[in-house]
Design a protein around this nucleic acid. Structure first.
Length: 191
DNA sequence: CCCTGATTCGC
DNA sequence: GCGAATCAGG
């Protein structure tokens, strides 16, 4: 398989969308994720910049490996393609639909992470990805599927996100965002 | 163990 | 230029 024009374009597109190298590789077929990453680097777009949105998880790390190769690391990236895209980012998610008003009413309504004061960003993201959720059943869950529950367990309108989890976490990226909301908010109120 | 991207280097 | 092997990390 060679990097035809179309394939390269798809690569660019997907990479720009934040797709992982392995996913791109699958989509393209005939190549491994290594090939994709290699190509990405050769194309000079190892950096997924967009519009200052979410911070990149993994950033360039210094390589302490014993490599005496004296390389000033000249960044050859003076070129500015006229068709460069500023990356519109995710504009949507304004109304932020209330997650799920699933409360039979009359209940104590105990804990629940205040659905109220969670990063609107995170919520938006969740709503975004829940559309793409795989809607897995309890039995379909594996060690690497997002276990975020959606809907009312008492109804058949209940499923699990099922999207690929990232690192040892039980949820996908988006859900991790709202699940592990760092303790903050109401903490220091006296000011 | 699963996954991610980054880098190296023989081809 | 290509990408497997390897590295580094979540």
């Amino acid at each position: 398989m060679s990097w035809s024009d179309e394939r390269v374009e798809l690569l660019k597109k997907m990479w720009g969308e934040g797709q992982s190298a392995s996913q791109i590789a699958k989509e393209l077929g005939g190549v491994t994720r290594n090939a994709v990453i290699g190509k990405v680097h050769r194309l000079g777009l190892s950096n997924r910049n967009g519009g200052g949105g979410t911070a990149p998880a993994t950033e360039a790390k210094a390589k302490p490996t014993a490599k005496p190769a004296a390389k000033p690391a000249a960044k050859t990236k003076p070129a500015a393609k006229p068709e460069a895209q500023p990356e519109p980012e995710k504009p949507a998610a304004a109304p932020v639909t209330r997650i799920k008003p699933i409360i039979p009413a009359g209940q104590p309504l105990p804990p629940q992470p205040s659905t109220n004061e969670i990063d609107p960003k995170a919520l938006a993201k969740v709503n975004e990805i829940e559309k793409k959720a795989k809607r897995l059943g309890l039995m379909e869950l594996t060690s690497r599927t997002c276990k975020w529950p959606v809907g009312d367990p008492a109804t058949d309108d209940f499923w699990f996100c099922g999207l690929p989890v990232q690192a040892g976490k039980p949820y996908c990226e988006a859900h991790v965002g709202v699940a592990f909301q760092p303790m903050s908010s109401r903490r220091d109120r006296r000011r």
